[in-house]
Every structure is written in structure tokens, then in C-alpha cells.
Nucleic acid binder design. Structure first.
Lengths: 236, 236
DNA sequence: CCCTTCTATGAATCGTGCT
DNA sequence: CAGCACGATTCATAGAAGG
């Protein structure tokens, strides 16, 4: 199966793809979680996620200004499209932060998937330490499957907590994940299978999939990141 | 303030305590999460959580056979009682597993607390591997506060992920937590404050509180564990 | 006392087969 | 057919046993 990076909105592109043609869904959708108030959430991500008065390092990305209710509906919409594209028993991994974790497990299950657990990404460094509080040093991968997941799948035992620091040189998107982290995660896919990432961003999931011997298809609607991801994938 | 270990049901005991007299709520309630079917959930914990036909190492504990709906209602009931007992701004820490995490964040917020984050207990590797799956090696601490939480509280910066293996000699309850883990957690309480644990079990939270210089009050309804906890605390 | 070898265990889960 | 009981499975680590 040919690898492809498609430019456009996942909700438009997914319906054009062939049913039952993917072995795993692994993606990092917009969290829509920055900001305590609805108003603060509607600022573009480059203002929302930047500390202090620093200028934005990364281009804005789309799809991050919904309120909780709309965000859930939107998650269920694209997840349901993905359910059609996945083979029976295929695993699903969705990144989320603590604030959106319950919404993410709801969305996964509303879309008809079986929720099977949570894997923790431990960033190891304290992000914004605050006296008298716990550090906010983890993000979460909500994972599950389309229907039952036979034990004879060709996939290894995978870690439930992945300790991986964020390295600037390896972060090409505002919410980009370390390549080493993604290389661990994609291994939930059956050996040599085909990985779907409808929110490819700077393409780290696709790069990891390629490095681990999978084929892949990604969608990304922001021109800038389609170019970034394209270059990274071409350089492999 | 005198330290006390009370014997009885939390829902009965909590209303008898004085309002605004605690600086932190730190507890590990029954999760009611084992078992795929209603029937399986009603088995005692020693059968539910132990593999194979091995004989039970620890005595059973009560309150683990509710379904999701009743479990939520019950959580909100005792949490609301605790809200009355806590001072304004006091932190709350609730243990939970991946399956009950969304329910726990709901319960915390339904009872009127502000949800502030999740802290991860990483049990480290060695926990029941399964091919083709992520290891289930973490439990979670949902934490928050009664109302706003001033930054000038006398409490240190605390870790967001705590790596701590389970040691047999340090585990006196089927679901007992390591003392080292609890010593880290209780430090969310303001220096020298008073800690409440309505589900004391073998008393690890109270032991940790004592070791870290806090005063404490615990409730436990199972005779056996009241005795175990009493002995541990007396031995300090 | 230190090192090596061995064994037991885990807040499970899946699939089968019986009721 | 739905629901439930039961056996099989996975491996890093702790802790015991032995040299």
C-alpha cells in the first residue's frame, strides 16, 4: 500500500478512503483545552500555549477553539469515520492532556471503540513548577480497539509509562511529540501494518511509522505543516 | 489536634466531625472496578483481583461491589461530607485506576471541589504483561482543592509522576500503597497540617502523615485493618 | 557478606465452554 | 443466546534460597 500525505480537513478526506484498509489509528488531535474560560480558549493556539510574553515559535494550527460540547461532537464525528477505515481488532491511540482525558475516553467509546487503557507519557521535566502543587509533567494516550483484540496479533508487549523528555530540535510543531516516543507507540500496530493519522501536524507519527517498518497515510490541513512533514518524510 | 483512628463506616463517622478542621483529604477509596460482569463485580476483592486459584494473602475489604452509577453517587456523598470538614483552599487527593478515572474526576467536581490535575503512580515495569498491549502499570491520583488554592501555601513543588515499585514487606492490604509513595503525596498538605483519610485500610496514609510531621484522622470499617493500622501507628 | 539462581507474583484479560 | 466460571497467558522484579 502506498504511503500518502493528504492536504485538507480530516472530516472531508476520511470519507474518500477505502473501508477496512488500516491496521491502526494513532493521532494527536487538537485538545481544545488551554485556557480556563471559554473566551481564553478562543484565542489562537500561539497565544494560548505560550508561556510568559515569548513570541510564538510555531505557526498556528486549526481546530483548537471549540468548547467542550462541540469538541466532543467533533471528536465522535471523525472517530466514527476512522472506525469505518480500520480493520476489525485494530488498535486506536489518542493523545490528550489531563483536562480532556475524560472527554477523550467518552469520545472513543461514543464512536463505538472499546476503551482498553491509558498509557502515560512522562515528560520527566517539570513544566512550570508551582509551589504547593503537583507538577504537570505528563500527557496521556487513551487507547482501545475496534471490537475485540485477539491476543495472537503480531505486536510486542508495550510500556504503560513512557519516559521521554521533550527536545527542542525534535519538536517542529507547537504540540509536537518526540520521535522516540512515537516509535514506541506505533508498535501497537500489527507488524508491517498500515497506520492512519488524520492530524499529522509535523508528521512525527508518520516518520515513526516509517522508521518502524509500517506503511502510513496522514492528513493535515495547514499548508505549513504539510510542507514540514513532507520534507521530513522525504529525508528518511 | 489529637490523632485518631476511628472504626466504622465513613458515611456515618464523617458527619460527627467538626467542620473546617482539616488541611487535606488524602485517600484511596474502593475502586469498584474489577470484573467484566455484574456477577463478577460482586465477588469479594480477594477473588476479583487475584489471579489463578492462589490463596488470598490479605483480608477482604468492604465497599467494592457497586455498579458505576451507584459508585458515583456514593463517591459524591462522602466527598460532600469531606468538603464540610476541610478548610478553604485545602487540597484533595483521590486514588483511582484507569477504568474509574473519568468517574473520579466527575465525583470530585460534583461534590463541589475544583479539579486541578492528575498525578501518576508509575509502578515501574513488571506488571502483568500482555502481548500486543500496553502494560497496565500505572494508577492515578486525581487531585484538586476546596475552592481556590493560594500559591503562598507552605508546601513544596511536588512530582507529577512518582516511580515507586510495590514491595511485599510494605504492602499490608490487598490494594496497599508503598509508604514512600504516600510520603510524597501527603506533602501537598500545608506544613504541620491535619490530614483526613476516610478509607484508611492498613493505615499507610496515616503512617506517611505521621512521618512527615502532620497530624491525622482516619476511618476504617474492617476490624482486621483497624488492628493492623493501629499496630503500625503505635510502632512509630 | 556477596553473588547467582530460582521462584513467586501482580487493584487482569481473553476466549472457551457450560448453564 | 446471554451470562458466567474457569484456565491460560505474559515477563520484570522482588525476594528467597543456595553457594
Amino acid at each position: 500500500m502506498k504511503n500518502q500525505l493528504l492536504k485538507g480537513d480530516a472530516l472531508t478526506l476520511l470519507p474518500t478512503l477505502e473501508a477496512c484498509s488500516f491496521d491502526a489509528l494513532i493521532t494527536d488531535p487538537p485538545y481544545a483545552s488551554g485556557g480556563l474560560t471559554a473566551g481564553a480558549r478562543q484565542k489562537p493556539p500561539s497565544e494560548k500555549y505560550v508561556q510568559g510574553g515569548k513570541s510564538a515559535l510555531h505557526a498556528d494550527f486549526a481546530g483548537d477553539e471549540r468548547d467542550q460540547r462541540s469538541h466532543l461532537r467533533w471528536m465522535v464525528m471523525w472517530l466514527s469515520e476512522c472506525a469505518r477505515l480500520l480493520k476489525e481488532g485494530a488498535p486506536v491511540c489518542l493523545f490528550t492532556d489531563w483536562r480532556q482525558l475524560p472527554l477523550t475516553t467518552d469520545a472513543l467509546q461514543c464512536a463505538g471503540f472499546t476503551w482498553r487503557g491509558i498509557t502515560v507519557w512522562d515528560k520527566t521535566e517539570g513544566v512550570r513548577p508551582q509551589l504547593g502543587r503537583f507538577r504537570n509533567q505528563a500527557e496521556y494516550v487513551v487507547w482501545g480497539s475496534k471490537g475485540s483484540m485477539p491476543l495472537q496479533r503480531r505486536a510486542p508487549v508495550l510500556p504503560g509509562v513512557i519516559r521521554e523528555p521533550v527536545r527542542k530540535a525534535d519538536k517542529l510543531h507547537m504540540t509536537g511529540k518526540p520521535t522516540a516516543l512515537m516509535r514506541q507507540l506505533v508498535r501497537i500496530c500489527e507488524e508491517g501494518g498500515r497506520v492512519l493519522d488524520p492530524f499529522a501536524g509535523s508528521g512525527t507519527t508518520l516518520v515513526a511509522a516509517q522508521l518502524e517498518g509500517y506503511s502510513w497515510l496522514g492528513c493535515e490541513m495547514t499548508d505549513h505543516y504539510v510542507e514540514v512533514a513532507g520534507q521530513r518524510l522525504a529525508a528518511l
